[in-house]
Structure formats: structure tokens, C-alpha cells
């Protein structure tokens, strides 16, 4: 397969962004290969009472 792209004039006015967070990308340009990964853990078990902050599995 031959993939042919013809880019014409690309003009953007104003970009307004509140947040770019946790492995995110704002790109003004061309890219070859992009790999973005994020792991986020906030299950109910994260809630602890007292000072025992270590996970339950580490006893």
C-alpha cells in the first residue's frame, strides 16, 4: 500500500488549554511514532484510617 498525503496551508488562531497532564502531548508539527502511557490508581482501598499507609499486601 502506498499512502500519499498532500498537506495544504494549516493555520490556527488561538489555542487555550487549561491543563496538559499525565503523559499527554500537545504537538504543533508532525510525528513519527507516539507512545503515551499512564497508570492511575485510586480505588476505594486506598482509603485508610490512621497511619498505616502501606498496602495490605505488604504485611
Amino acid at each position: 500500500m502506498k499512502f500519499q498525503v498532500i498537506n495544504h496551508d494549516l493555520s490556527i488562531g488561538d489555542l487555550k488549554i487549561v491543563g496538559v497532564s499525565i503523559s499527554s502531548l500537545v504537538l504543533v508539527g508532525d510525528a513519527g511514532h507516539i507512545a503515551l502511557a499512564a497508570a492511575f490508581d485510586t480505588p476505594p482501598e486506598t482509603l485508610t484510617v490512621g497511619t498505616a499507609l502501606v498496602p495490605l499486601s505488604v504485611v
Binding site: I12, L15, S21, L25, V26
Partner: peptide, 18 residues
């Protein structure tokens, strides 16, 4: 590729503006 202005409040935690 023309952009007049970019206004970002915050970029955080392995993020990027390129």
C-alpha cells in the same frame, strides 16, 4: 503550520508541549 497563540495553564506529570 501556523498558530497565532498558545495559552496553557499547566503542563504536568510527564506531559509535553512540542
Amino acid at each position: 503550520i501556523k498558530v497565532n497563540s498558545i495559552d496553557i495553564f499547566g503542563i504536568s506529570t510527564a506531559a509535553m508541549l512540542h
